[in-house]
């Protein structure tokens, strides 16, 4: 398991290749990459703040939980902070498992929890000013499907 919180860009292809290499008992590798989206054409950049220490701790706890729920070979989470331009990759998760159902489900679980349980905060800096991105009720609702 590898959890990385960093400011610099990462290479999706190289990370995926490294994650996939040398495995002979994993039939499925799922990756997800989150990218800075500009809905209105006015976004200059995104500023991502985080809580050093708690961030790594929270992501590790989420990944550990995924490994108890599904039969996984490995988990990778990379999440950036700092200033990110539209189109830049923000984060990626990768999971591998003997079968794809586990790899897909675990990747979705990781994403749902990273959204509202990992201490990151996004601020959109546009031509018209800057504003913190508000958490969505839908993000919180997404967690209910993993409970009970």
């Amino acid at each position: 398991m590898r959890i990385v919180v960093q400011e610099p860009a990462f290479d999706i292809g190289a990370e995926t290749a490294a994650f996939a290499s040398g495995r002979h008992d994993m039939g499925a590798i799922v990756t997800f990459t989150g990218v800075v989206r500009d809905d209105t054409g006015t976004l200059d950049h995104l500023e991502i703040e985080h809580y050093p220490g708690m961030t790594e701790r929270a992501i590790t706890a989420i990944a550990d939980e995924a490994r108890t729920r599904w039969s996984l070979g490995d988990v990778l989470v990379i999440h950036r902070h700092g200033c990110l331009a539209p189109g830049a990759p923000i984060m990626m998760v990768a999971t591998c498992a003997p079968h794809r159902a586990d790899a897909f489900a675990a990747a979705e679980f990781l994403m749902d929890y990273l959204k509202s349980r990992a201490p990151f905060w996004k601020k959109e800096v546009t031509r018209d000013g800057a504003a913190w991105v508000a958490a969505k009720d839908a993000d919180e609702d997404a967690l209910t499907r993993w409970k009970g």
Binding site: G34, Y51, M54, H79, I90, M91, M111, L114, K115, S116, R117, A118, P119, F120, W121, K122, W132, V133, A134, A135, D139, E140
Partner: peptide, 10 residues
């Protein structure tokens, strides 16, 4: 102790 708004990761 840390205070913050709801998180917006991912």
């Amino acid at each position: 102790v840390a205070f913050f708004p709801p998180m917006t990761g991912g």
